[in-house]
């Protein structure tokens, strides 16, 4: 098992209250799996990513990535946010190097690798431009290349498409899906968009309302070689959508 999450509990402390965010979450992820986590809003989806990346510690339970406790300092996980978080004062090229720079791995070899990724995925002509000169979809693509430049084994995608307009979102879904598959990465996608989850993931984890438990796990089993866009239009996807929709709807009623 590449990622092992076992009996994870998390309680947030604040001055006025303590909130149980996660309640006994367990799941496994194989290498090169694409897993999506969906659930009612505010149920703690992002919290799970923070725990897997080692940014926060669980109250109890364990997270193992590649058999080790994850730390943000290692190169195992690459985090992608809802916002591209490109630094506006750096060119696209420098932004792509930013992760390498922070991790003090900005050797020529690694930089060349980053640039070759940028080339491969259509960013070559933008390298000398500034983020403000690029469209939202392009910027999010730069953010992905910045993450991939570190050669992470596991990509943590925290609603990376939700700030984009619909058209761009569908296109970028296709692109990022194919990049991740081609680079043979394992990925966990957190999203509130059920269709997006179905169109990209091999495994969909549905969470309950807070404190989040695992409500259901679905394995869509699409035929190989379908793009996310093609998957969206299958009857299988439509049936699965209704099912997950109902599951989340039931949870929303509890809130």
């Amino acid at each position: 098992m590449f990622v092992q999450v076992k009996n994870l509990n998390l309680i947030y402390q604040s001055q006025t209250d303590e909130t149980q965010a996660l309640n006994d979450i367990s799941f496994d992820i194989e290498k090169q799996d694409f897993v999506a986590i969906v659930g009612p809003s505010g149920c703690g989806k992002t919290t799970i990513l923070s725990l897997i990346s080692g940014l926060i510690k669980p109250t109890s339970g364990t997270v193992l990535v590649d058999g080790k406790m994850p730390k943000p300092k290692d190169n195992l996980c690459g985090y992608m946010f809802q916002r591209d978080n490109l630094l506006p004062w750096k060119t696209i090229e420098k932004n792509i190097y930013f992760g390498l720079e922070i991790k003090k791995q900005a050797s020529n070899e690694r930089k060349n690798y980053a640039i070759s990724l940028a080339d491969k995925y259509g960013l070559k002509e933008f390298l000398k431009k500034y983020p403000s000169e690029l469209s939202g979809g392009m910027r999010q693509r730069v953010a992905l290349i910045r993450t991939l430049a570190l050669k992470p084994e596991l990509l943590l995608l925290d609603e990376p498409f939700s700030a984009l307009d619909y058209q761009t979102r569908l296109n970028l879904c296709n692109d990022i899906f194919s990049i991740i598959k081609r680079e043979k990465k394992t990925a966990i996608l957190v999203t509130h968009d059920i269709q997006e989850a179905i169109s990209m993931a091999d495994k969909i984890i549905v969470l309950s309302a807070r404190p989040a438990k695992i409500k259901a796990i679905h394995l869509p089993n699409f035929e190989a070689n379908l793009t996310p866009f093609e998957r969206r239009n299958t009857t299988k996807a439509k049936r699965l959508f209704e099912k997950i929709w109902q599951e989340i709807q039931d949870e929303n009623k509890k809130i």
């Binding site: 990346s53 940014l55 943000p72 985090y79 946010f81 916002r83 978080n85 922070i102 991790k103």
Partner: peptide, 16 residues
Amino acid sequence: NQLIALGKSLGASKMQ
């Protein structure tokens, strides 16, 4: 804060 979150996710030190 989002930019700082990016730094943290990359394992940046407080000085960085």
